[in-house]
Every structure is written in C-alpha cells, then in structure tokens.
Amino acid sequence: MRYEGILAETVRIQGHGGDEIAAYLARPLGPGPFPGVLVVHHMPGWDQATKEITRTFAVHGYNAICPHLHFREGPDASPDDAAAASRAAGGVPDERFLGDAAGAIQALRMLPTSNGKVGVIGYCSGGRQAFLAACSLPVDACVDCYGAFVVGTPPPEMPMKVTPLTDRVQDLRCPVLGLFGQEDKFPSPEQVEELRGLLTTHGKTFEFHSYEGAGHAFFAVDRPSYRPEAAVDGWQRIWAFFGQHLAA
C-alpha cells in the first residue's frame, strides 16, 4: 500500500519590505525531496478554493504555498473582508506582490524537503501576477491560468489599475504553460495569440492550450464557470509540465 498524507497549515513568511504576512503551506508527509509551487490567488482573495488547490499540489508531491496578498489590509479580518479593503485601497501594487512572492519562494526553498526547484501558478488576476513573477524572480516554471492583461490594451471605458506586461516578456526566465478558455474575453483568443507571438519573437519556451466551450475561471469548482473537461485536461497538463521542469 502506498502511504498518502499531507500537512496543511497557516504560516508566517517575510514578504515585501520585510513585512510578516500569512501564507497557507501544504506539504506532503515524507522525506522528499519535493519541488515547490507558489500558488497565486485571484482578486476575490485568499479563499477556500485556492487553499484547496494548494492542498492538491501537496497531494501530488509538491510543497505548495499560497501567500495572503491582502494580509496587510486585514491581518485579523476574514480574507473576503481583507480583499474588499485591498480593492478599495487600489489593489495590490506589482512591486508589493513581487516582494511577497519572493518571500514565499524563499520559504519554499528553505524547507528541508525542497529539491531546490520552484514553479509558480496563478489564476485570473493571479495568472498575470504569476507571469510577472516569472519575468522577475528565480522560478523554474510558470503556469498562467487565464491571466487578464498579460498583454492587450484595456478598453477605454476601463480605467485600469494594472498595466500589461508586454515590455516584460523579454525578461521571462522560465518555460510557460498557458491555459485559456476560448470563450474568455479577458484574455480574449486574440490576446492569447498576441502573447503567443511575443513569446515566439523573444525565443521563449512555452505551451498554450485553449479549451472550446470554456470561458474564464474554468478551473473554479465552486463557480458556474467550472468546465470539468477543460479543468481535468488542464490539471493533466499542469502535472506533465511541472513534472518535466521541476524535477531535481
């Protein structure tokens, strides 16, 4: 019989500017060595669904960490209240996100069971942030799940607080797996093709999959946007991709 077990808990890590922030850490029980995965939550916050995703990585043999990106706006508040306060204050600045992500990556690499490799995955706004991390921080693989405004010009009626990452593509440090829904508007199929073109131009290693019948957030099992066929296939792509690029 193969033994299965994980340990999942909240921990404190050092984030941007030396601030202590909360994170959710899920680890396989066993000697390792295990690769690490930084899980970036979406704008609604450090929610149960994202923590479940973090645990899923641990079940599959990864040390996984999900930092609470809205912690400063509500250290003692419920994550949804902290997310609302963060949004009202203008959202998470890119620089602050990168500092928090760097702290989470360091925490993964310092685990005694780490194999030294770390990947990053993000969903929705977290998809853009995962891509940003892959352009700026020492990670070995990146999965962008329908991140809006990695590329693309925001519509004029949308006063964006975030900027596209078009100018950062040349700095990408690792292979990228992109998982998209063909019925998504942000990113639209045209924006996915624009990103494909940029990655090709800069000679980056990438793999894109766009699913028919799926729109935004097709991985979200707690939302009507959930598309089982796309999500099941997407998870298989993730295991293959991280398995290839995060092996010691």
Binding site: G74, D76, A85, A217, R223
Partner: peptide
C-alpha cells in the same frame, strides 16, 4: 453562485476591514 456580480461594500474605513 454567479460568474460575475455587481458587488457593493458598505464600510467604515476607520474601523477596519471587518466593519463591512
């Protein structure tokens, strides 16, 4: 149970994020 929604937060910003 919606893909998107119109969200309203009524808050007292001085009292912290829990006052919502």
């Amino acid at each position: 149970p919606l893909e998107h929604s119109l969200n309203i937060d009524f808050v007292d910003e001085q009292a912290g994020p829990g006052k919502r």
